[in-house]
Amino acid sequence: MALNAEQEVVRGRSSAGAPPQTSYTRKKRFNSKTALTMLAFMAPAAIFVGIFTYYPMISGSQMAFRNWNLNDLSDTSWVGWGNFRTLFENPEFGTIVRNTIVWVVGSLVPQVVIGFALALFLKRKFKFRGAYQAFIFFPWAVSGFLIGMLFRWMFNAEFGVVNDLLMKVGIIHSPVPWLAEPGFAMTAIIIANIWYGVTFFAIMILAALQSVSDEMYEAAAIDGAGKIRTFFSITLPAISVTLGLTILLRIIWIFNFPDIIWAMTGGGPADQTHIITTYMIKITQKGDYGQASALGLIVVFTLMLFAAFYLMAVRPRKENR
């Protein structure tokens, strides 16, 4: 059910503005030759994803229901929901869930807002726009691990440039132990993630904006609409589907993105910056693959449920138009 809804919105990308010009011609000559072609076209993708993604994933999932600890594999009996129970009973679990929400929301909202503003400003041509774009887009090309290490170095308490600058400007008077105090550490990792993610939104929103036709703006101008009204009555609705899908994909990715945190704090201090996926790495390092798999399944189901609700919530807006 969830998947059908998702498919709706993915397809919605093309049908939001104009009538879907392709769908009515789709049901056509569907003979056995076409079917064979289709099969041949789909086969490579299906084989690759089947072998290298689905097989290991399904095979790995069964560990979630077994006592699968690499430290001692002599007894790998089935334990039913035991691993899930251990996870839920863990007093840290609440903190980790809370952190995950803070991490996703805290990273996402500024990414959307700044990304949107950036895209609006970049929409019109100006001198050196090409060069500007190349620089502004570059964080997207840096790996999560590297971003984590880079910010870990910049947030270093004694030799980090962040403390040095803040002290020069006079905002702080003594160095802040950024990665050693839970609240500061959470702030630091979120700043790093915002830095990384703004670009992605800027690109996607810019692309969407450029596809909104000038006629629509001109019509709005004739109606005497001001800038703000134009934004809310023309721009936002026109790109809402792209925006909706981009946000959904982004939420899924941020949720599943341990790289920056792992490189910067490793989930510390005192496990206070763990999100679900970094905690999963921690569990695998302890060797308990059973529990880690259980946590992985929880992630998959949470995201599926979330995606379903999310898509149900965004869909009506599309129909209103």
Partner: peptide, 20 residues
């Protein structure tokens, strides 16, 4: 098929590592 593709985006890589 589309759903199966989307689902791969939700799987944390660590589950699959051992069998892979």
């Amino acid at each position: 098929v589309l759903g199966a593709f989307l689902l791969t985006q939700m799987i944390p890589g660590f589950i699959a590592l051992g069998p892979l």
